[in-house]
């Protein structure tokens, strides 16, 4: 609390922070379990990261370095405005470099750079309930989580294979956390799912509209659901990045003109820029 201005550090008032931190601690204690919390109104619309912002605001300290990405990019509207927001209300340092950040708020991607123990990854989550397209009743999905009754999720994957010949879920691919809770990884590409498994960084998930927080503590097993004869396969466009030439990173397909021209570039802009700089330095 800043006594001089009467203005609170990082936007959210202290009692709200306490409430959100309690929810985070509960979430960390029960990996993958959705903890309800009293989501507040935020100065941006639902679907733009109200959950992520509240989690970030509650864990941010004055010495933290914040990075915000949207679909992997640091320079999109959502990422730029949230970064500017925290620079203004918390005065924290911001960065576009994954390695330098201590808190990374993300929408729809996990950075290509391996994260470390001193970093926290905050996901913006539109729909925390992995079963909601399969079971409309929230009371019933809660019961299914309580009883670990997840056969229905496999029915969905079965249907995918029966219809398309392979599991066609390419994002928001359901995972089992610590062998107990079924969890929605937020709409990250299935390509990023393996990065969640035993990640050294703490992963926090905030869903503002649905008022849920959940977490994956460091070094927790996160397994993508699959069948023995149709194992989980991360999907990636079979191209190299036009700008940096990477064959490992996740690619965006970018339309370059209205005559069918297109190129593939890394969705992680920091990773791509670093590789381009290294290439330029080598030449």
């Amino acid at each position: 609390m800043n006594a001089q201005t009467g203005y609170n550090f990082a936007y959210v008032d202290e009692s709200t922070k306490r409430m959100i931190r309690r929810a985070i601690l509960k979430g960390v204690a029960i990996p993958g379990h959705q903890v309800p919390f009293g989501s507040r109104e935020m100065p941006l619309p639902y679907g733009w990261g109200t959950g992520g912002i509240q989690v970030t605001a509650s864990i941010l300290g004055p010495s933290d370095v914040l990075k915000v990405i949207d679909q992997g990019a640091d320079d999109t509207t959502n990422a730029v405005s949230i970064r500017a927001f925290f620079r203004r209300v918390a005065g924290v340092a911001t960065t576009e470099r994954t390695a330098e950040a201590t808190v990374i708020q993300t929408r729809h991607r996990i950075p290509e750079h391996a994260l470390t123990e001193r970093q926290i990854l905050v996901y913006q989550v539109p729909m925390p309930e992995p079963l909601f397209r399969l079971e409309a009743r929230v009371a019933e999905t809660k019961r299914m989580h309580a009883l670990a009754d997840y056969g229905l999720m496999h029915v969905k994957l079965y249907e995918d294979i029966a219809r398309h010949g392979h599991i066609a879920t390419s994002y928001n691919y359901p995972v089992m956390v610590d062998g107990r809770y079924l969890m929605s990884p937020s709409p990250i590409p299935a390509f990023d799912n393996p990065k969640m498994d035993r990640m050294p960084a703490l992963q926090l998930f905030g869903a503002g509209r649905e008022k849920r927080i959940y977490a994956v503590p460091p070094y927790t097993a996160v397994r993508s659901l699959d069948f023995e004869d149709h194992p989980f396969r991360p999907i990636r466009a079979p191209h190299a990045c036009t700008l940096c030439g990477s064959r490992e990173s996740y690619l965006d397909e970018v339309i370059t003109d209205d005559r069918g021209g297109k190129m593939f570039v890394c969705s992680d802009t920091d990773y791509c820029a670093e590789r381009q700089a290294a290439k330029a330095a080598a030449e």
Partner: peptide, 21 residues
């Protein structure tokens, strides 16, 4: 909304069957 095969397979999957074939 689930195919005949999925309907029959549901109980198998609920009791731990994980081999699509």
């Amino acid at each position: 909304g689930v195919s005949a095969g999925g309907n029959i397979g549901e109980r198998l999957m609920a009791t731990g069957a994980r081999h699509y074939g």
